[in-house]
Computed example of a mutant assay.
Amino acid sequence: MSLSLTGEVVGYIGRILLNKNPFDPTGNDFLLYLVPLTISPAFLSAAIYLCLACIVVIYGEQLSRFKPGTYTIIFCGCDIFALVLQALGGGIASGAKTQSKLQLGINVMLAGLSVQVASLTLFALMCAEFAWRLHSHRNAWRTDHAAIYNSRLFKSFLIGLCVATLTIFIRSVFRVAEVSGGFHGPLANNQVSFMVLEGAMIVVATSCLTGLHPGYCFQGAWHAADFSFGKGKVLDEDTEMS
């Protein structure tokens, strides 16, 4: 989250500098805007992916198709891959001197953004599948965390997490459409659509993840919902205290 928000601030500083000098011959301001704003939402996605793993532990690992660590490995792995492609493509595009190299950078960025959209789509489907399992096996939920998942605060957190996922997905789809049209396309030069479908979506997502922070909404059980990649052992509160 910290990396993402830092990247967003840096990216908008780049846009302000471009406003003062849109034809900067060095291309540094364009690079300062393009790369951070392209890759920053990937860090937001990673934060959401980590939350799912802990949610699974709170309700009960036996109800999930996969171990909590498996969710983290799959989706954060996809996120890192998308991140590398987006950063690489942005670097190529910003330093391109020929049309062919510019198009190469755009294509690499587009591939990274497409991976992110696909990852978010798969994540949403797996969340829905886990929610269905919870609905179908209510009697199998962990009883030691009943006070947490029955609380209004935790239910609000789940809603906020869904909203954050949706807004990041909308933003990612918009960026795919924007980049696919090229830097001279209509979407890339429409400030209203950028501020609504890029800026506003990130503001909503970060507000949900901050106002409904998991460290607060898990009511002290975030560390108790930790998991290990090796044996998948869950730490309960007594183990944590000892």
Score class of each variant (00 low, 15 high):
Gln219Val: 09
Cys127Phe: 05
Ile80Glu: 02
Ala188Phe: 14
Ile148Tyr: 04
Tyr12Ala: 00
Ala205Tyr: 06
Leu113His: 02
Ile16His: 01
Ala124Phe: 01
Ala224Pro: 05
Leu63Ser: 11
Leu52Asn: 11
Ala46Trp: 08
Leu104Trp: 03
Phe229Pro: 02
Ala47Trp: 13
Leu187Ile: 15
Thr143Gln: 13
Asn28Glu: 07
Ala42Asp: 06
Gly232Ile: 04
Cys76His: 12
Arg138Asp: 13
Phe194Cys: 06
Leu153Lys: 15
Gly27Met: 07
Cys217Arg: 00
Gly182Leu: 10
Val163Tyr: 11
Leu158Phe: 06
Ala205Asn: 06
Ala200His: 03
Leu32Met: 15
Val234Asn: 00
Gly181Pro: 05
Ser100Trp: 01
Met1Pro: 10
Ser156Lys: 03
Tyr149Asn: 07
Ile58Gly: 08
Ala188Pro: 08
Pro36Phe: 00
Ile16Gln: 05
Thr70Val: 12
Leu134Gln: 05
Ser64Ala: 14
Val108Lys: 03
Ile170Glu: 02
His223Arg: 08
Asp226Val: 00
Leu122Thr: 05
Thr70His: 11
Ser119Pro: 14
Leu104Cys: 07
Cys54Met: 06
His184Leu: 03
Ala224Thr: 09
Ile159Met: 12
Ser228Val: 08
Arg138Glu: 12
Val35Tyr: 03
Gln116Ser: 09
Cys162Tyr: 10
Arg152His: 09
Lys231Pro: 07
Ile148Lys: 10
Val35Gly: 06
Ala111Glu: 14
Asp226Arg: 01
